[in-house]
Structure formats: structure tokens, C-alpha cells
């Protein structure tokens, strides 16, 4: 479903050129659950952003089926993100002025033409992440872990083909982390949603079927056998 070929992305830091993503190529099958490990600054977030259509690569291609992502117009790219991809960011990504429920349904605001029933019901999602009693709460009234769970619920609202998760369980306690990873697995198995997760935490490697390591922009497969 997803084919990545020869991705390059450099940043200029002062006089130096930093290779954030260096000739990365790999393929993703529908229903895959992929984990990319790497230390901070290894380029994994940049790679995820290129795959998610958030930042343009210097060279290389990202192909979803027949669609070459970076040949789309900006409007089409926005629509593509809205309908086929979703994200879980490593930062608190809730809009502070919106309630938990409004945050979860936020992606529907940008796709009036879409079938509103295509996605999963927001309240069911919040029930799945254990926030059924926080529908009307604002992010400031939630703990960091609860905010992260709300953001995870939002990632499923448009029933995406792929979820790009950047350290999705970063600030969750062990128990909640396990619950969320179990939810990922359930969505992966039952709904066929593909997961591409980047994390520095190798302890959760068992949740995925394919593994890579990223170091200084270079991606290499790793057998976690």
C-alpha cells in the first residue's frame, strides 16, 4: 500500500548541513504494524512527517497505491491527509479551546463532503480509551496521559488507512501504555489499520511485526526475532 523510495531531507544548521533523512527506502503492506526505533535527533520524526505529507522531501517518492503523495496539489494533499492518514504526535496535540469530544471530531470539520458515518463514533472511541466521562472536559482539566489518550481516540475518527504515531505512549504510565498498545493491535487486526510507529522505546517492539532502526537519517531493518 505504501512504497517509499530514495527519500532525502537535509536541514541547514548554521553552516552545517544535517542529513535528517538519508536515502530511505522501504515498503509497507496493508495491515502492517511497523516500528522505527531511534534516538532523539535520529530523523525519525522528519521521516514520519514526509510520509504523512507534512514536509516535503528534498528528493525521493512516497507512493500510496497509485498516488504519488508529493505530486499532489496542496489542497489534494490536505484532503488526502484528512481521509486516508491520521497522526498521533509526541506533544500534547489537543486544541485547548475545544472539549475532548470536539477535539476528537475536529478532523470532520475539514471534510464537509465526506460521509460523516464513515468514521467511528467519537463517543465509542472515547469509551475505548477510557475517557467516556470526560467528553465535555477541556484539555487543561486532563492529565498529560488523558490528553494523550484523547489524541489517540482522535487518530481513529476518520477510519484512516494508516496511522503515523510519533512516540504515542511517551507520557503514559505502564498500565495505560499497555492498554493503548492493545487498542492499536485491536484496530490493526479488526479494522485493518496500518500502523507506523516511531519510538526510542525498544520494550514495546513486540507489538509490531516489522522493525527498523534509524540512526543519523539512515534507516536499516532490524530483526527483533
Amino acid at each position: 500500500m505504501l512504497e517509499i523510495k530514495g527519500l532525502h531531507k537535509n536541514y541547514k544548521v548554521g553552516k552545517d548541513i544535517v542529513k535528517a533523512v538519508d536515502n530511505v527506502s522501504f515498503g509497507v503492506e496493508k495491515g502492517d504494524s511497523i516500528m522505527i526505533f531511534g534516538h532523539s535527533g535520529s530523523g525519525k520524526t522528519t521521516l514520519l512527517s514526509i510520509i504523512g505529507g507534512l514536509t516535503k522531501p528534498d528528493s525521493g517518492t512516497v507512493r500510496y497505491g497509485d498516488t504519488e503523495l508529493w505530486s499532489l496539489t496542496d489542497n489534494d494533499l490536505s484532503e488526502f491527509r484528512n481521509r486516508r492518514i491520521n497522526f498521533i504526535f509526541q506533544f500534547s496535540s489537543l486544541i485547548p479551546t475545544l472539549t475532548v469530544l470536539e477535539n476528537v471530531i475536529l478532523p470532520t470539520a475539514f471534510n464537509k463532503a465526506a460521509d460523516k458515518h464513515r468514521g467511528i463514533d467519537a463517543k465509542d472511541l472515547l469509551f475505548m480509551v477510557g475517557l467516556q466521562d470526560k467528553l465535555g472536559a477541556y484539555p487543561s482539566q486532563l492529565s498529560g496521559g488523558q490528553q494523550r489518550r484523547a489524541a489517540i481516540a482522535r487518530a481513529f475518527i476518520n477510519n484512516p488507512e494508516i496511522i503515523l504515531a510519533d512516540e504515542p505512549t511517551g507520557d503514559l504510565d505502564e498500565e495505560t501504555e499497555a492498554e493503548m498498545l492493545a487498542l492499536f493491535r485491536k484496530m490493526n487486526v479488526e479494522n485493518g489499520i496500518t500502523f507506523l510507529i516511531v519510538t526510542p522505546n525498544t520494550d514495546i517492539a513486540g507489538q509490531c511485526n516489522k522493525h527498523f532502526v534509524m540512526n543519523r537519517g539512515i534507516l536499516t531493518p532490524r530483526d527483533m526475532g
Partner: peptide, 16 residues
């Protein structure tokens, strides 16, 4: 800025 970037990630168009 981050919020606006987040909205774009969730599918907001430039015009939105």
C-alpha cells in the same frame, strides 16, 4: 502556530 500546524495535519486546507 503549533495548533495551526496541527489543523493542517488533520486535513485543514490553506484556505481553511
Amino acid at each position: 502556530q503549533r495548533e495551526l500546524g496541527l489543523l493542517r495535519a488533520l486535513g485543514a486546507k490553506r484556505t481553511d
